[in-house]
Design a protein around this nucleic acid. Structure first.
Lengths: 177, 177
DNA sequence: CAGAAAAGTTCTATGATGCAACTAATTTTG
DNA sequence: CAAAATTAGTTGCATCATAGAACTTTTCTG
């Protein structure tokens, strides 16, 4: 079941987590990508080692959220396959971002299951990075974040201040709440 | 506590999920970004509405994984702040990917909390997209996935086949397992 | 038509989470 | 300096989620 408290939050990250933030959800999505976007119940179960009842629940959540849809195998029949919708396919960057992060920082054991390559060259795709509207890569120092407040105004935060990487010294504002 | 069964999987996505896939983890990370990378216990609690014991656990998990670190406020003192490590800061693309997806597809209510902008122009950053090593954007049709098998060989999957978007017809391979 | 497989459902045991109350340090206030 | 408040937790209890196994029903195969 979707985490109700997340789904209604005024934050697109929280709403996303309400759907794909549950245990197994993203792994199920990964399996769909490995299956050309289509999988069947037992196939998912076998490849993930998930319990049937949990899989049933996750498929329901994902279906209700519009990430996957049921495709009946015979008209009027009860059996079906599941496939990614456009919304589901659009989880690719999220999945890749997590895979790349995991590979860079959590590489014990040093194994991976999925590699994404360019058809034209066979090369692996590049690490994801944030870019401006013109397509130029941006580093952390090129960015700032705004927090949308209760009255619609935006409170600007400078990012990242020097002390983050340069020392362990904390600014006064952190000391006095 | 980290999901043990995920952390040892031969998949970088699963290992990432072992750390950031728990309820609250990514929202905690988001809060760190909004706080210039630094937050204190009560600050996180107030802004997220999370229980203290769960927050304690998450901070421990994230600390052990190396995503954040404790910064003592006074030497020898027990009180501390927490700040993102480089590894934690590197979750930015993952966070942005999820936020952008949530905003595009799960936009009820139509609110958001965080906006990422370019310092130079004030423009919002572009939607994340996969690119090749040369920096050219790639669409789904430009990609293929390989699944790394148990013996190191890679099984190629074509992606996406036409029937995914063109019709609800399923290929024979789906019908006969 | 008999047997197997597919796609669940139901049951129970265990683990994770939320809430409230309590504690021990530190900091602030009078 | 003593009293009060704040911070950063810990502990106990109730509830929800998850894993695992057994059971059911529909569909497919020989």
């Amino acid at each position: 079941m979707v985490k109700k408290s997340f789904s209604n939050m005024a934050c697109s990250l929280a709403r996303a987590l309400g759907i794909i933030g549950e245990w197994w959800s993203m792994l199920i999505v990964r399996d769909f990508f490995l299956g050309n976007g289509v999988r069947r119940f037992e196939q998912l179960r076998d490849s993930l080692g998930i319990s049937r009842n949990i899989l049933t629940e996750r498929l329901k959540t994902l279906t209700e959220a519009g990430v996957i849809e049921r495709v009946p195998l015979r008209e009027g029949g009860k059996r079906c396959a599941y496939k990614l919708t456009d919304q589901g396919v659009d989880l690719m960057p999220t999945m890749v971002a997590m895979m790349q992060w995991g590979e860079k920082w959590q590489s014990e054991p040093k194994q991976r299951l999925v590699v994404v390559r360019e058809k034209a060259t066979g090369d692996e795709i590049a690490p994801l990075c944030l870019r401006n509207q013109g397509g130029e890569p941006l580093s952390m120092r090129d960015l700032y974040l705004t927090a949308v407040g209760p009255h619609g105004e935006q409170v600007v935060k400078e990012w990242p201040p020097d002390w983050i990487t340069d020392s362990d010294q904390l600014p006064a504002s952190t000391l006095k709440h």
